[in-house]
């Protein structure tokens, strides 16, 4: 995000710029919602028309692993909120610890998703399944949204590490924590998308 330091005397005040940045991130997330909605709609239509295929996949794949993974991601959102609270109270080290935990849990989530992908691949669910397989058509509609989400988690982890690094440099304070807040908006968004995907793909 841009920081108009060069314009400090003329442009918006730091508070105004913080509001601008948050507003900008909200708009960015609105556009993300729409990209995800394309993939989610495509899956939902497939789910409605091919209940048997989805049943076969669920037989292959328990729900235990993914439930644990969802728990990890939810916990990471909690850690993120704790980090924000820490910096609002001026606690730099606590901020670094909590956001570091967020990054760790995010990494674990991606790792376990990889484990699940491997299991599915062994079971024969591939991205290019054609009509010949019992999983026909499922793979691409499953891997695309989940991998796209996974990519967002990876970017989120990198962003979290960047926040930790900036915290270590002492860039945040009780007045200036918009950088933590915007990361929080993004991370919550990634979390909410996962809850949607989890419900739609594994539960419904």
């Amino acid at each position: 995000m841009a920081e108009a330091t060069a314009h400090a005397h003329h442009g918006p005040s730091p508070q105004e710029q913080a509001e601008n940045i948050k507003f900008g991130v909200w708009l960015y997330l609105a556009s993300e919602v729409i990209i995800f909605s394309v993939f989610i709609t495509i899956y939902a239509m497939f789910r409605a028309q091919n209940p048997d295929t989805v049943f076969h996949v669920r037989e292959e794949l328990g729900i235990a692993l993914v439930s644990f993974n969802t728990f990890l991601l939810l916990t990471s959102s909690w850690a993120m909120v704790m980090g924000l609270r820490a910096i609002q109270a001026g606690k730099q080290r606590a901020l670094m610890a909590w956001i570091g935990l967020t990054a760790l849990l995010g990494t674990a989530f991606v790792g376990l998703q990889y484990v699940e992908y491997t299991e599915l691949a062994h079971a024969g669910v591939a991205i290019n399944n054609t009509n010949a397989s019992v999983f026909a058509g499922f793979g691409m509609r499953f891997y695309t949204p989940t991998a796209f989400h996974g990519a967002h988690v990876i970017i989120g982890v990198i962003w979290a590490l960047w926040v930790v690094w900036r915290a270590w440099k002492g860039r945040y304070s009780t007045e200036n924590y918009v950088g933590v807040e915007t990361f929080g908006l993004y991370w919550h968004f990634v979390d909410v998308v996962w809850i949607l995907l989890f419900t739609l793909i594994y539960l419904v």
Binding site: L27, A30, S31, I34, I35, S37, F39, T144
Partner: peptide, 14 residues
Amino acid sequence: IVLATPFLAGALTL
């Protein structure tokens, strides 16, 4: 642009 272009992005991705 913010609300429509992502549809193109989704379609192009696929």
